[in-house]
Amino acid sequence: GYNTALFGKWHLGDVEGRLPTDQGFDQWFGVKNTSDEAGYSSTAQFDTSIVPLPYIWEGEKGKPSRKVKPFNLESRKTIDREIVERSEAFIAKQAHSDKPFFAYVALTQVHPPLGYHPDFINASRKGMYSDILMELDYNIGRILDALSKAEVAENTIVILSGDNGAVTDGIGGGSTGPWRGGFTGYEGGLRTVGIVRWPEKIKAGRVSDEIFSTLDWMPTLASLIGEEKRIPADRPIDGIDQSAFIKGSQDNSDREHILFYIGDDLFAVKWRSFKIHLKTNETLWSPVQTYLFPPVYDVANDPGEDNNLMKFNLFAHSWVYVPMGQILKEKGESMKKYRNINPGEVFSGY
């Protein structure tokens, strides 16, 4: 097996039994939930009898996690530096181990409340947001340098990604480029950076607009390292093995569609280059809109999702509802046969 560590944001359960060291990691350091919590204690009426004071935590497998220090606006400035330093130490140590390693480095930038290391105050001379981007770039560079210094860079898979598109409201910067909306069901909320480096196996410089989901990393990584037999066969797996696509042995992704949820609600279905919106919200703060006839966009030709094809030639594209219906039918049947596992449930199989 692998030596494993998580450094940074977790946000997949904040009680014992649901922490990183309960979910396969040997060690962890970071925050149980979200960077939002760094701002809690600075608000005028924050009450620890209602909401516990947020902390930065650390832990090892088999032991209760322990508090490191309060997570507030001051510690928010330096947490990414600490994440990087611990990651560097982990890489250096694991380079001399007989076992391979997996490090999940979840940096907190860029995310409100905005705050950054003092080394980057006015570093860009373009304002806080640009300073934060410089810090983020610097921290990623340190991780890559740590791999080179440990002489494991050539045979280490590095993935750089994010969990959602840019949220520009009230943050002083950021952009979704030509795509509409951030943190919504539009392309600006769906799309994020996706870069993979593996010098020994993956040719550098390839760029693709094919569909690839975060869900695909688990089966893809298992296949890339020759451990696809470890993928559970007793349940549906949402991810698709994209190893052939990643290695460049084929130009096309093996994923043709993706379902996009906000909370428990299905907002959009993307099939090929078509995007069908069952619900929409224009910003974080706007109401949710539902439709009698869900709008359809061709994001290859209309990345801003401005031209509803259902209005163009009046329903000529209503046939696109057919593959969407088939996708949702198959998913519904699968969810009925294989019920969702409840959070915290000890799952013994179907």
Rank of each mutant, 00 (worst) to 15 (best):
S175Y: 05
I140D: 01
R142D: 00
P199T: 05
G181S: 06
D145I: 07
T184D: 03
T176R: 06
R142C: 06
S148K: 15
D137S: 08
A166H: 10
W198A: 06
E135N: 04
W179Y: 15
G141T: 09
I171G: 12
N155Y: 12
P178E: 04
N155H: 13
S175N: 09
I140H: 01
L136F: 13
W179E: 03
R191A: 01
T192A: 13
V167F: 08
D169Y: 15
N155T: 10
L190P: 00
G189R: 02
E151M: 05
K203N: 13
N155I: 10
N164T: 04
A150M: 09
N139T: 00
I159L: 15
G188C: 02
A153G: 12
D131A: 09
T156I: 12
T168R: 14
D145L: 13
E200D: 14
M134L: 14
T168N: 11
G172L: 08
A204I: 07
F183C: 01
K201A: 02
S175K: 07
L133A: 09
D131E: 08
G174C: 09
L144I: 13
V196A: 12
G194E: 05
L133Q: 11
A146Q: 00
I157S: 01
E135S: 06
E187T: 00
D145K: 14
T184K: 06
G141M: 12
G170K: 14
R180G: 00
V193G: 00
T192C: 12
V152D: 11
E154K: 14
G162T: 13
M134Q: 12
E135D: 03
G165M: 11
E151H: 14
T156P: 07
S148H: 14
S161G: 04
W179L: 03
L147Y: 12
F183V: 02
G173A: 08
P199K: 01
T176K: 07
I157D: 03
A166C: 12
A153Q: 15
I195A: 08
G174R: 09
D131C: 08
K203W: 01
G189Y: 02
T168Q: 14
E135W: 06
T156L: 12
G162L: 05
D137M: 03
V167W: 11
L190V: 00
L160Q: 05
V196N: 01
V196I: 15
S148R: 15
K149Q: 14
S148F: 01
G181A: 03
L144A: 04
G162M: 09
I140K: 02
D137K: 06
N155V: 11
P199E: 01
D131I: 02
V193Y: 10
K203A: 15
G189M: 04
T176W: 04
G188D: 03
D169A: 15
Y186H: 11
G177C: 07
R197H: 09
L147N: 05
R191Q: 11
A146I: 05
E200P: 01
I132L: 10
S161Q: 03
N155A: 10
A146M: 04
I202A: 07
G182R: 12
Y138R: 00
E187W: 00
T168K: 13
V152C: 13
R191C: 02
I132A: 04
R197K: 13
V196K: 02
P199Q: 05
D137H: 09
Y138F: 09
A204C: 09
V152M: 10
G188P: 03
